[in-house]
């Protein structure tokens, strides 16, 4: 049973991280109607940038991290302006393909510059694990969980109470109406990409601290799809819930597989089976609005 609880805890922690990345994905989709297949590459690039700043300049973690955030915001805005803006009004396949092209390019580029091997982060928290209720939990995991919760609370506050958040919600609701109310849709688009890139980089840094940085990080961007489809593509709450469910589910599949079935590889594949089933029976997910494109 120990293993069961260990995997359950893992699932919840990984699930909150999926939730954070899924939120970034939904943020871009909601406000700019772009499906971002390059979300995982934001994690990858963010983690590598932070790592190289820490290694090269040997500055305290907080400053290195802030520099990373600034860089990622600039990168997000740059990508939105140069690559996505010409795609406004193009058919959906073009938009999907341009983000896929972006993801290939960014992944190959970071593999070229930083290498493909897993590299550990400089130790920030000390390696000793904490004992919670008889289970050994690494402090980095606790920190990742806490940070994820803080990000989610921050998102909630931002969209609920801040002026910019209100502008973004208005844009997501109806771009023309938002524009006629004096909201600069261009700024909102840029801001959505900047926030999404920054928060993704944050998630990337957290995963990097726990597991080390490697090109495998970008696969989280693929794992996000089961989460967002499960939760509903245009629901931020759904993204969090979907992320949690997918995180727990894949670890439970791992447990069942390791104990009884011995099929192997279930951790990777189980979410995709769920994805197919959800798409067939309930394509708008748990929290999504129902008026999506349907036949």
């Amino acid at each position: 049973m120990d293993l069961f609880f260990q995997l359950l805890i893992n699932g919840i922690i990984v699930g909150t991280l999926y939730g954070v990345v899924a939120m970034c994905f939904v943020l871009i989709y909601k406000s700019t109607q772009v499906v971002n297949f390059a979300q995982g590459e934001f994690l990858l690039v963010g983690a590598w940038i932070c790592w190289s700043i820490l290694i090269a300049f040997e500055i305290p973690f907080v400053f290195g991290f802030l520099l990373t955030l600034a860089f990622m915001a600039a990168l997000g805005i740059f990508i939105q302006m140069v690559v996505l803006r010409p795609m406004i009004g193009e058919p959906i396949i073009s938009v999907i393909m341009v983000t896929i092209g972006l993801s290939i390019f960014m992944r190959a580029f970071s593999n070229w510059v930083f290498g493909q091997d897993t590299v550990g982060y400089p130790d920030v928290f000390g390696a000793s694990s904490i004992n919670i209720g008889g289970l050994q939990v690494q402090p980095a995991y606790i920190m990742s969980f806490v940070i994820s919760i803080i990000i989610m609370a921050g998102f909630f506050y931002f969209f609920r109470y801040s002026r910019h958040g209100l502008a973004m919600r208005a844009t997501a609701f109806n771009q023309q109406v938002a524009q006629s109310l004096g909201i600069s849709v261009k700024h909102v688009f840029a801001m959505a990409w900047a926030i999404s890139a920054m928060v993704s980089a944050l998630a990337g840094v957290v995963v990097g601290m726990v597991n080390g940085v490697s090109s495998a990080l970008s696969f989280i961007g693929i794992k996000v799809f089961p989460a967002v489809i499960l939760g509903g593509l245009d629901s931020i709450v759904g993204a969090v819930v979907g992320g949690l469910i997918v995180g727990v589910l894949e670890n439970m599949a791992e447990y069942v597989d390791g104990q009884f079935l011995y099929w192997g590889n279930m951790l990777t594949i189980a979410p995709f089976w769920v994805l197919i089933i959800i798409l067939v029976i309930k394509p708008y997910g748990l929290f999504g609005t129902k008026d999506i494109e349907r036949v």
Binding site: I96, F225, P226, T268, I269, L279, V280, E293, V295
Partner: peptide, 20 residues
């Protein structure tokens, strides 16, 4: 699944099919 979904949702369904 293409009988029921299209566009983006179909892209994601075929992505899942690829991995499966």
């Amino acid at each position: 699944p293409a009988a029921r979904i299209k566009g983006l949702y179909l892209a994601i369904a075929t992505l899942a099919a690829q991995f499966i």
